[in-house]
Design a protein around this nucleic acid. Structure first.
Lengths: 111, 111
DNA sequence: TATATGTATTGCTGCATCGTTATCTAGTTG
DNA sequence: CAACTAGATAACGATGCAGCAATACATATA
């Protein structure tokens, strides 16, 4: 049975923290279909420029996206698509849970 | 290319949020080796009872652990070991990243 | 019923972080 | 060099949540 040391758990928690913001997941979802400039992400998500920029910084620091510049533009790209595997796993769990709750609800309302 | 809807992303973010606390990961790590009472978890982690209890509640609400009682004790158990798969994936990423940084550091200090 | 034990909850304080506005910086172009 | 554009950062108010102490609750036992 593998177990984790304390500081590894702290780092893992920090990583999950990065993924624990809807806005950041939205940004990753946009980048999933291809590299984008900050302005493009702002436009697609109808978001605030400063806010998007800040979230991209956090994703960059976490090593989840990369940044390159072209003229005055900053182009961000997913560096590690494994994020989407994580999301898929969580989605499966959520779906299973919602499904289970619906079963319970049905059995309660059955007449 | 699969993409996610806005409210799914919000739910996924909420799930990651649950996993984004070192204390909760420590608790899960303890439960990994077997079901435990609140008191046992408190003792193993040398934590505060109220705090552990509160974190267990959050994990329970998230469907990550289950709860049963025996006398006056509450026994918690992992319901979904997939959590540890998530942690393993993140650990791999972190390890890769740390490794990469060490490579950079080495190349900078090479003489 | 009174007491003891194990757990949950409440109330509080302090800290972290989100989103926003305003400002700053770095390239680009006239 | 001035004006413009894209992006980053600073400052701020608001919210959320961790941790702790105190208290409430529930079950067991005398």
């Amino acid at each position: 049975m593998k177990t984790f040391s304390e500081d590894v758990l702290t780092q893992v928690a920090a990583y999950f923290q990065v993924l624990a913001e809807p806005m950041r997941l939205k940004i990753l979802n946009v980048l999933r279909s291809g590299d984008r400039t900050v302005g493009q992400v702002v436009e697609i998500l109808e978001g605030n420029q400063a806010n998007v920029s800040k979230h991209l910084r956090i994703l960059l620091d976490a090593g989840i996206v990369s940044r390159r510049t072209e003229g005055t533009s900053a182009i961000y790209a997913i560096t590690d698509p494994v994020i989407f595997d994580l999301c898929d796993i969580v989605c499966d769990r959520l779906a299973a849970r919602i499904e289970a709750q619906n079963m319970i609800r049905e059995s309660l309302t059955r007449r």
